[in-house]
Design a protein around this nucleic acid. Structure first.
Lengths: 232, 232
DNA sequence: AATATTTCGAACCAAGCGGTTCGATTTGCA
DNA sequence: TGCAAATCGAACCGCTTGGTTCGAAATATT
């Protein structure tokens, strides 16, 4: 063809209709299908035909919304990350009783991260980040990392109030998180545990973890306050 | 064919030759090729042709040694696990100075688990355990789990010596391990860290972790001993 | 040198892959 | 109702997959 018709250029001139690949409902439908397939099979084993089937959307349409398999996967992970870490840190927002707050937050954190659904999602991300490292990095940065920052802010406030004495708050925040998980995460992600830990077990782990943490970092002022409220 | 010759049945009657698929050198050669491909690409993305190429062994021969892709992968992981966790716990065998021993062991543990090679292997296992849960479970059970048991034995001895006071030794062992990793494992496995942590960083983390651990579980006797050896 | 057996390597299989194309069909606004 | 746009769905592309087969070549023991 020597001359191209102007048609392709005119495609951008639209009426009030949603542009191609812009319908949020269709998009959500595709991602929902992708979720089932990707989470179930992992990135490599999942096929676009599977997703087509699962989403109930034609292959052509999927390629209107997403350039390729990788882009679709990334969009899914981004969404998963959003829902996983949503509403997880608000318990840290109002500073009440230090120990109670730590236990409450630790319980939520530990339960969330070790839940079957979330573990499966994380497994998928880990598996994929072998070939797409940026994906894993982005997931961590916008997920766990943000949580870590929230914990740091909280710990800093506790330090300022003289309840904790911490040299390296950054490190202490990691220690707190890991104490709340205490091996559960690793057991789950390696499928050594096939079921998520029970609420009772999580509370046991977290309570002990907070104990360790406060014994290491709690000040005399904290101890005094706890004695006071205990005798009350 | 109506009649089968007896040839196939006579195959078992061998002379002094190594039986088919029994040469340990060839086997090692195949696994070495498989390692490069599987670790690099993950289970799904790796192809038997890649392994054929990388191992310098014909496809037919590989199928003499291993029934299929999955069995080859499992053999590889089993070997990897063996080399990873070998010679890791002997520092716990002779009970010397408690703090020093914990720091030394923690450093070895943390360095090993977060090393680039081992992280990549673990990522591969995690990715695969989505589809082959038994594989991840077996890896954990014969790797990290055994280490955990060694730590428990060590901690129990410290308790008996009156240096530590621990209610739940099982949980405490997990706490110790996690304190030594303090987020490093999660950062590495999600590719948030692309390089393994430096020796200095690991030592900093471990020293702090041991500090926390001993503040929580150390007895007065331990404190007295440490004061004594410090003033000496 | 003769012999038994392992290994090689190429060919073959049906199946599925990601990706793309395009005319038919459905959809929904004017 | 008319019409433009979004969606559908099937077909097609070249390529790779895991797995298998088999005669030729290499190998070592007798």
């Amino acid at each position: 063809m020597v001359e191209t018709t102007a048609d392709s250029d005119l495609l951008d001139l639209r009426k009030g209709r949603p542009a191609a690949g812009q319908d949020p409902v269709k998009r959500a439908q595709i991602i929902e299908g992708a979720r089932r397939v990707f989470i179930d099979k992992g990135f490599e084993a999942a096929s676009m035909n599977d997703i087509t089937r699962e989403a109930g959307v034609s292959k052509g349409t999927i390629y209107v919304y997403f350039a390729n398999k990788e882009e679709l996967f990334e969009a899914l992970i981004e969404e998963e990350r959003g829902t996983i870490f949503k509403n997880m840190y608000e318990v840290l927002d109002h500073f009440d009783d230090l120990r109670k707050t730590l236990v409450k937050f630790g319980t939520v954190l530990s339960a969330k991260i070790t839940s079957a659904k979330v573990i499966q999602a994380q497994r998928t991300v880990v598996g994929a980040s072998d070939r797409i490292p940026e994906l894993g990095a982005r997931f961590y940065e916008r997920g766990p990392k943000r949580g870590h920052d929230k914990v740091m802010v909280f710990l800093n406030e506790a330090v300022e109030r003289g309840l904790l004495k911490i040299d390296d708050v950054d490190l202490a925040a990691y220690q707190f998180t890991e104490l709340c998980l205490a091996g559960l995460f690793r057991q789950c992600i390696f499928s050594y545990r096939t079921k998520a830990p029970s609420q009772a077990e999580i509370e046991h782990v977290v309570r002990s973890g907070v104990n360790v943490f406060l014994k290491a970092y709690g000040t005399e002022k904290l101890a005094a306050e706890e004695r006071a409220s205990e005798s009350a």
